[in-house]
Design a protein around this nucleic acid. Sequence first.
DNA 1: TTGTAGGCGTTATCAG
DNA 2: CTGATAACGCCTACAA
Lengths: 336, 336
Amino acid sequence: MAVSIKDVALKAGVSIASVSRVLSGKPGVGAKTAERIRQVIDELGYRPNLGARGLVKRKTGNIAVVVPRGSYILNNPFFSTILDGIAKEIDQTEFNLLMSFTSVQQQRLLETQAVDGAILFSPRNEELSMDWLKSLAIPIIVVGSYLEDSPFPCVRPDDEEGVRQSVTALFNKGHRTIGLVNGPMSSMHSVRYYKGYESTLKYLGIPFSKELVFELDEFDGGKVVEVVSEFLKGNQHMTGVVCSSDFLAMGVMKAADNANVSIPHDLSVVGADDVPISSFLTPSLSSVHVDLIGMGRKAVSILTQLLEEKELEKKEYIFPMHYVDRGTTGTPKMKR
Amino acid sequence: MAVSIKDVALKAGVSIASVSRVLSGKPGVGAKTAERIRQVIDELGYRPNLGARGLVKRKTGNIAVVVPRGSYILNNPFFSTILDGIAKEIDQTEFNLLMSFTSVQQQRLLETQAVDGAILFSPRNEELSMDWLKSLAIPIIVVGSYLEDSPFPCVRPDDEEGVRQSVTALFNKGHRTIGLVNGPMSSMHSVRYYKGYESTLKYLGIPFSKELVFELDEFDGGKVVEVVSEFLKGNQHMTGVVCSSDFLAMGVMKAADNANVSIPHDLSVVGADDVPISSFLTPSLSSVHVDLIGMGRKAVSILTQLLEEKELEKKEYIFPMHYVDRGTTGTPKMKR
DNA sequence: TTGTAGGCGTTATCAG
DNA sequence: CTGATAACGCCTACAA
């Protein structure tokens, strides 16, 4: 049986009101009484029950991080690095962090008034009903991507710029046949990557070919390597490939290895997001860097602003990307 | 203003007691009334307030996952894979998942009656006070490692067996000078790895040399590669190395690359845990596999058993490990 | 400066 | 079968 405010009041010989006052640092308690109360609190090791407090204050003190269904996500460093940022920033606040990984969980979490606000991680357009989200009537932030036609503020990388830089980097090294390995088009992230890829090619005067675009439903382990291997075999004239994530790039590297395609000798590869692990690969992965930790932090900080009823300066917080040249990119050979 | 049980009762023309009864599926409500109530609940989109319910039931419906301080952890696939299992299993229950990443967070979480039980992820001996943990008076499970002299059930890999198998695998390939790259000794995981390494060498009749053991405080990015490179240079007669995690093994691979040591030609490397990403490395990493997802699931399932006041069959749930031969291991060359 | 009492949304006990 | 009503732990007017 946990010690309650009543126990403290009793032992200190005061009313619970006074205890409550010193607890919340409110004025109206004599110095001596306050001191005594504090001492009793200490002695008894009293801790306020957050649930009860939430009930009357109508605040839970929790915020939710909602990640899309599909377990692949947890092993995706794009996610864990942003989560790292979220965790760091949340540590500066008084909030607890609730996480949900499935739609059942998120329903329970969001509909039962268990949280004051939520951070949606790279949601897919088709998975979340906008009406439902709005009906929740709590502040919501989208991070990593954004929802189409959504009223929610979002924090995301400047994808178009990222893919522009990676395609251009390959172009500048002499590549003229550049493929794209992309994620599922249900994510706006992939959509933007696709568009940016297309427009950059056009800008550079390179013909666009549907053959060179590969869309992966997700990175679900072994299967990926197989299909990407096929893709590589079917496009032997391709000398470079840009990917919409480092995770995909890793798959490409492995597939290349499988297909006896040497990187960067036969094929140059550029990832995206530059997750921490990228520089540990062999060869180390060229990528377009973005401050994922900062994105996580930003998501939390604007959510807490909203929670404090402050106005946001803008609706989209777009983080710059910049190309980082490492070991997976080189000049193209004449022929593969 | 969220709709409460009162609103439902009002609109249905019944007492809140009856509403509460249909909500919790308790008997004592006429079929017709129940039907009407259900309908109103639907119309109003009523959802019970978990906090209020928790207050009277003295259950929060939350369980905590406590991860040790230090951000490296989030990008460690050992963690994220176990977390994956935790998430999967939690989905089978009615619990919400609260996470804490720092000591401040875990204090708030655990001391404010915000959770019914907790899963401690690979805790370090010095970071958690046993007395404090006991004083919380909630069920606690340790996963990934264990706490010395702790009364808490734990779920962990059979580390001793793992290192025995990896050392033996190298031995069988002809290696006689085998190093160990280990984590910090504050983790029991490292301690067991160290012991297993030592005893296996003795069993195989290989002399133990302190020079060949390298202890890394943690995998904190670039620095690791540097120091491991030094280690490799200082031990050129070493033909194989076993690591206490795949994460460390990746660092060794990168360091080897830096030092112009070719794997597995010049040096064989064995990781541990066989995280999903391992098979995507080039060359793919030899490791000792363990069912990390299963460990996560098990942690949740025994915690919920405890929460239901059921007895546990045992105190330690040890998962078997078995060596998986992949690309980073080969026969030793005569000389490096 | 202090205490009393009402209420936050639920569940549970006890009458009717 | 149904409905008051008293908790649960806490906050906060309002009184004293």
